[in-house]
Each structure stands twice: as C-alpha cells, then as structure tokens.
C-alpha cells in the first residue's frame, strides 16, 4: 500500500471535537499538576522530616506508587476503590486522584532534593535570627530550593501531560479518546492517529526545549557558564 492517499479533510471537519479533547487533556493535566504539587510538597516535607512517624509512612506511600504502573493505579482507583467506598467515581475524578497521587510521588522527590540541597548553615542562621520553622521554610529554604526545582518541575509537567493519555482507557474524554471516536466514525485511522501523535509533539517538544533552557539557566548557576555544552 505505497500509494496510500492521505486525506486530512475528515479530521479537519472534526476539528472542534478534537479541540474539546485537547481541552480535556490540558484541563486534566493542569488540575493534576496543582494537586500533585501541593501533595508533593507535603510528602517532600515528610520525607525530609526527622520524625520517623512522618517519614516512614511517606516513604511507604512513595514506594507503593513508584513501583507500580500508573495504568494499574488508575484501574485500581476506578474499578476497585469504589467497592471499598461504596461510591462510583466518575472517570474524571478517578483520573485526577490517580495522576495527582502518582505525580505527587515524583514531585515529592523534587522538593526533597531541593530542600536537602540547602546548606545546614542557612537553617542555623535562620534559627539564630529567631525565625519560626514555617518562616524558615517560606523565607529561607524554599526561595533557594525553587531555583533548583524549576527544571525537574517543568519536566514533571510534561510527564503529566503524557500521563493523561492513559485516562482514555476509562473513557475520560481527552485527546486520545476523541481521536479514537473520530477514527472509528470516519474510517481514517492513519490520519486520525498521525494527527494525534503530531498534536502531542507540538505541545511537548517546545516544553522539552523550555526545560532544557531552564536547566542551563538554573542547574549549576554557580559554575562558570563557559564550559557548558549540551
């Protein structure tokens, strides 16, 4: 079939539906990023805490989520958790719960290494200035840690966008599901799925280059930038 006739007109006719899918993807990704970050901060603090009662449960939680596929987590939350709760979750809510928890585990690692990277002297200095713990975190640790966290954070945002594609298997209306519908209706799988792949790339490749740029800008800002070559 070398003389296949590409015909994108059917895709173009469904552009509105595709746009809805894209909106669904970005909406889900944005919500998961927000929840993932908040939860990730709490987890990160728990992970770098000296209290065993905080640290161990956080470690177990992170270990559980990092060592299982997000696909299985989503299936578990959508199909298995309702049995325990007695309430059926909508695909949207299930996806938010699954992906927020999954990304929180990775984001917690970013926060933790950001916090750990701050020299002890900074915290002692804050103590000496009689700052409370919360003030130390807010005024001393986080502003410095954030610089180092920005590149991996941008990377994580990309991962979340990719992750949302999995929500199509529980029929949440995002880009993959909508493409599938178009492909099935129009009998144009090649054009539909090629458009899908290209759409993801046009969102993610610029983000990838932004991440690379941020990495160059922030990662080792103490080193002279002369020797940098990527």
């Amino acid at each position: 079939m070398s003389n296949f006739q590409w015909d994108f007109s059917t895709i173009w006719n469904n552009i509105g539906y595709l746009g809805q899918g894209l909106a669904g993807t970005l909406y889900l990704a944005a919500i998961c990023l927000v929840f993932g970050t908040l939860l990730g901060l709490l987890l990160g603090l728990a992970l770098s805490s000296h209290r065993v009662l905080l640290r161990i449960p956080a470690q177990m939680f992170v270990g559980l989520f990092r060592n299982t596929p997000s696909m299985v987590q989503l299936l578990w939350i959508y199909y298995a958790l309702p049995v325990l709760l007695g309430v059926q979750l909508s695909p949207f809510i299930a996806a938010i719960v699954a992906f927020s928890l999954y990304s929180a585990c990775y984001i917690s690692g970013i926060f933790k290494s950001g916090i750990v990277s701050i020299p002890k002297g900074q915290i002692e200095a804050a103590r000496a200035l009689a700052l409370t713990r919360l003030q130390t975190l807010r005024l001393v640790i986080l502003p410095q840690a954030v610089r180092k966290m920005i590149p991996p954070f941008a990377n994580q945002a990309m991962e979340i966008i990719k992750l949302t594609s999995i929500a199509s298997i529980i029929a949440y209306g995002e880009l993959v599901l909508h493409t599938k519908t178009i492909s099935d209706q129009e009998f144009r799988p090649i054009e539909a799925y090629t458009t899908l792949a290209l759409l993801f790339s046009t969102i993610l490749i610029p983000l990838a280059y932004l991440t690379l740029h941020l990495e160059k800008k922030f990662s080792d800002y103490r080193m002279p930038s002369k020797s940098q070559k990527s």
């Binding site: 079939m1 992750l163 799988p189 090649i190 792949a197 790339s201």
Partner: peptide, 22 residues
Amino acid sequence: DFFRTSALLVLIIWFYFAFPMI
C-alpha cells in the same frame, strides 16, 4: 526528541492502527 516527548499510549495506538495500513 520526537520519541522522548511522545506519550507512550499514543505511540502504541499509532503503531497498532496506523502503521500496518501505511
């Protein structure tokens, strides 16, 4: 860059539905 930034599920679906036809 293309493959690193693609969603895996999208690639799998593309190779399953579009690749054989092309």
